[in-house]
Write a protein that binds this DNA or RNA. Structure first.
Lengths: 371, 371
DNA sequence: ATTGCCGTAGCAAGCGCTTTCTATTGGGTA
DNA sequence: TACCCAATAGAAAGCGCTTGCTACGGCAAT
């Protein structure tokens, strides 16, 4: 029923070994023979049996790209770039380096993350790229470190993209981390420079590196300006008491969703009706924040400035255009793809920090009356 | 180095066959024995060798989900839903039905679509889900039909989601098609009812089923209202001559991108400065259209109404909230996932049409002066 | 007691490919 | 002319797992 290597060999009047070598192109085969084999392959419409091939060669051409939320362009852009870089090199003509880059959606669930890693391990994946922020739960970190070490042991190349390096994991090929802290700091500094003193912050979900780093940057900027109490920021979103400059309780956590941005902003506005700016965990959340501000009858940026993070494509189209922090998602994804393929040399120490650039646009302006 | 089934068998003091049966759970094994095996698996940290298993069993647990653009939430939502449905059933406890659902990004390129299908075929994928509009190029249709038939032949379940059925392809498990034509018609009818008579249309790329169907719906509505010349719509976007009611040349094609929407709208506005509404191929394009309308100093919806298609999450957040056509992307994706798994019975004839619902919001209103 | 089965476990034959090692050939060189 | 080597092709041994078939106890029925 199905055509096998042996069938092709028979038709081309050569041995199976020769067919295999023609297909893999890693052994000299006379031009005439090669031609004959290739024609037989075509005639018979032969398709290599992946599992058999992987079993015999003890390697596979599968490359897994793990994302936290496939419906979020933040991940889509990185994954697409990586996939292009990986699947793109088919110019070889032959099946040589044809990798199968696939993206796996964890939905942000640690269990699914591990499950996918196991499944990829089963398949003896050639490489794995983990994108986006990691969960900071100690147990999960241990589980991940162990799992990744095993993968690396089995020859799988592990690359992190937009995720900080795992402590003590030298098994990893490279990790490209975004400078979320620096970006967060610059964004808030921008607001401070404009004259804002009462700034609300809609943070992402707790226990995510991305969330923590961006928030740290924000708090660092405030602290440098002599505002707020850095200690109050994390873990006590519903803060109480009075801070040096009334920044207490101006941080609310929630998922990276538009809805969360909407509700958190309403909450912030209730807690501090006099705030003049809202910084969101990312652009999607910022959109929700904008809606909430408007629904309160306030104008952007005249009454309240709003800022996001990531600079997703739609951000420049928002009205007013969203001030945000640009992350070179495409470039990072592409680079991760090349690193996974081994077509780019890893950065020194396997760690690279990717700069986050402030994009000041129309959604932020000086507060109504600078005190 | 690596642990194999035999190692586990030795440790559990049973034969490899028994271990295999415990792991696959498709053959009676005494409880005590099972326990022993499971413990050995744990102790040894054994991970099944996927390729070997697939080779021997002549099946694999890979499920491929093909998307046209992974950075577009339209696809992300469907893919995520399908993946959840497929990867979600791990409740079985054992490795039983653990499928590896992966998404492959074709980037809209027919070659990559075929390449991915071949790669999936190599892996003897358990199922393949094709999402979104198809290319209407005759050559590609033939190639696809042939390829899908071969996949189906090899036991791969093929499901189409958001894509019209392939003519004469009974190899396919099911196809869930969106009622793009009906949605397009209702959307334009809505505009006509509001009193619009001069409506610009920013269509998607040529030769895509989605593009054609939506446009057909639009033109059908116009024709039913005695406006426009249906024959002028397709294939002659830069129309010439005069139509019955001056709808000529009010259709411009371009990719499904924000930028395309922006430029096309500028073009439409130049051709017909008196148009009172713009219908976009999808929400992303509509966002670009909105930007263009505003940049021309026109207000939405007072001066120009704008409408989109898909009802992506951000559409309700646009200002003003975008009138659009809702497609139940998540539900469709989930259903496709179940169909691929065989956990839902296919619709009669393998074909289901999914209704598209008009969402009239603030971006559309009666034109300034109804003539 | 015998027979017949049911419930379990093992044997062993592959699944379709890769790859090491071993031929075979046809010059080029001594 | 004899010899050696480079270039190319084949033989065959697995890779690690699944599964049809066989084997072996007991237990119920005869």
């Amino acid at each position: 029923m199905t055509v096998t290597l042996a069938d092709v060999a028979a038709r081309a009047r050569v041995s199976p070994a020769t067919v295999s070598r023609v297909l893999n192109g890693n052994y000299p085969v006379a031009a005439a023979t090669r031609e004959r084999v290739l024609r037989a392959v075509d005639d018979l419409d032969y398709v290599l049996n992946g599992p058999a091939s992987s079993l015999a060669a003890a390697t596979s051409d599968l490359v897994g790209i793990l994302v936290n939320d496939i419906a979020d362009p933040f991940f889509g852009i990185m994954a697409g770039a990586a996939q292009t870089e990986i699947g793109g090199q088919e110019g070889t003509g032959r099946a040589g380096g044809e990798k199968l880059a696939v993206v796996c959606n964890t939905g942000g669930s640690p269990e699914r993350e591990l499950t996918y890693l196991t499944l990829l391990q089963r398949q003896r994946a050639a490489a794995v790229i983990l994108t986006g922020g990691a969960l900071e739960d100690p147990g999960h970190i241990v589980a991940m470190t162990t799992k990744l070490a095993k993968l690396a042991d089995a020859g799988t190349r592990v690359v992190l993209c937009g995720r900080p390096p795992l402590p003590g994991s030298d098994a990893i090929v490279a990790s490209l981390a975004f400078d979320n802290r620096g970006g967060g700091r610059r964004l808030t500094e921008h607001l401070l420079t404009l004259g804002h003193r009462k700034i609300g912050y809609v943070a992402g979900p707790l226990e995510r590196t991305t969330t923590r780093h961006r928030l740290e940057g924000h708090l660092a900027a405030l602290a440098a300006a002599g505002l707020g109490d850095p200690a109050s920021g994390e873990g006590r979103s519903t803060g109480s008491g009075e801070g040096r400059a009334g920044q207490e309780g101006l941080v609310v956590h929630g998922p990276y969703s538009r809805r969360s941005g909407y509700e958190a902003t309403l909450e912030l506005l209730r807690r501090a009706p006099d705030l003049t700016a809202v910084v969101a965990a990312n652009d999607t959340v910022a959109l929700g924040a904008c809606a909430a501000v408007r629904d309160q009858g306030l104008r952007i940026p005249e009454d309240v400035s709003v800022a996001g993070f990531d600079d997703l494509p739609f951000s420049v189209d928002a009205t007013p255009a969203l001030t945000t922090v640009r992350l070179p998602l495409y470039e990072a994804g592409a680079r991760a793809g090349r690193l996974a393929m081994g077509t780019e040399t890893p950065p020194p120490g396997g760690i690279a920090t990717i700069t986050a650039e402030l994009m000041a646009r129309a959604s932020t302006a000086p507060p109504r009356a600078t005190r």
